[in-house]
Computed example of a mutant assay.
Amino acid sequence: MTNYPFFSQFKYIIFSASLVLCSALSAQQQPFKKQSQSDFWEKVQFGGGLGLGFGSGYTDISIAPSAIYNFNPYVALGIGAQYSYVSQKDFYTSNLYGGSLIALVNPIEQIQLSVELEQLRVNVSVEDDFNNSSNTRNFWNTGLFLGAGYRTNNVTIGGRYNVLYNENDAAYSSAFMPFVRVYF
């Protein structure tokens, strides 16, 4: 066999040149991680609800921030937190706090369907004026809400129904609840 030292060196030169060229081309592209981070945050919306109610000896304060991730114009998933304080002077005081997971489906632009799983810790204290005593209950309440609403821009107005509602151990007085949902 004849030895061709030029071709042997030529292979090394081509190999080295292709490595340098590939490295230079790769450096011109944006890193995948940065691109996916910006895409992720462009699809996230924040929102939630605030509630204030005052009356003669009655106070109701609630805050419920949430965030959703829009997979596409039709489907979104999100998480939320909630805290509520309700008090009727000389009768009733409650604190509710917990979190939720929500799935939103928009089959058409104006209609929004939702499924929300909510887990709340409920602390209730009821004053009994006749016996001069207090009854305290602390328990966990799980709700599975199915909802539907009319959507315009970032606002949805509708109702939801708790399919796990049990009036003996409930955090709410009714299984049906109206809602206003806002996401920015």
Results as ranks from 00 to 15, higher is better:
Val115Ser: 08
Gln37Phe: 09
Val126Asp: 08
Ala103Ser: 04
Ala27Met: 14
Lys33Asp: 13
Ile61Lys: 09
Pro178Gly: 02
Leu146Ile: 04
Tyr97Ser: 11
Tyr74Thr: 08
Lys43His: 07
Gln88Trp: 03
Trp41Ser: 05
Gly80Pro: 09
Lys33Trp: 13
Asn106Pro: 04
Leu21Phe: 14
Ser8Asn: 15
Ile111His: 15
Ser18Gly: 01
Thr2Ser: 13
Gly48Phe: 02
Phe91Asn: 13
Ile63Leu: 12
Thr156Asn: 04
Ser173Glu: 15
Asn132Ile: 02
Phe46Glu: 07
Thr152Leu: 03
Asn168Ala: 12
Glu116Asp: 14
Gln29His: 12
Gln119Trp: 14
Asn70Thr: 06
Ile111Leu: 15
Val86Asp: 03
Gln82Thr: 11
Phe184Leu: 13
Ser125Ile: 09
Ser66Leu: 12
Phe46Arg: 06
Asp60His: 10
Asp129Phe: 14
Ile79Arg: 05
Asn106Trp: 04
Gln88Thr: 03
Lys43Thr: 04
Gln30Asn: 02
Ile157Pro: 01
Val75Gln: 07
Ser62His: 08
Phe40Arg: 04
Asn168His: 13
Tyr97Asp: 09
Arg121Ile: 12
Thr142Pro: 04
Trp41Thr: 09
Gly47Asn: 04
Arg121Trp: 15
Gly51Ile: 01
Ile68Pro: 06
Lys33Ile: 15
Ala171Met: 11
Leu77Val: 14
Tyr12Ser: 14
Val44Lys: 04
Ile13Gly: 10
Ser125Gln: 09
Ala17Phe: 14
Tyr58Gly: 07
Ser56Lys: 01
Ser100Asn: 14
Thr156Asp: 02
Gly47Glu: 03
Ala175Ser: 11
Phe40Glu: 07
Asn106Asp: 11
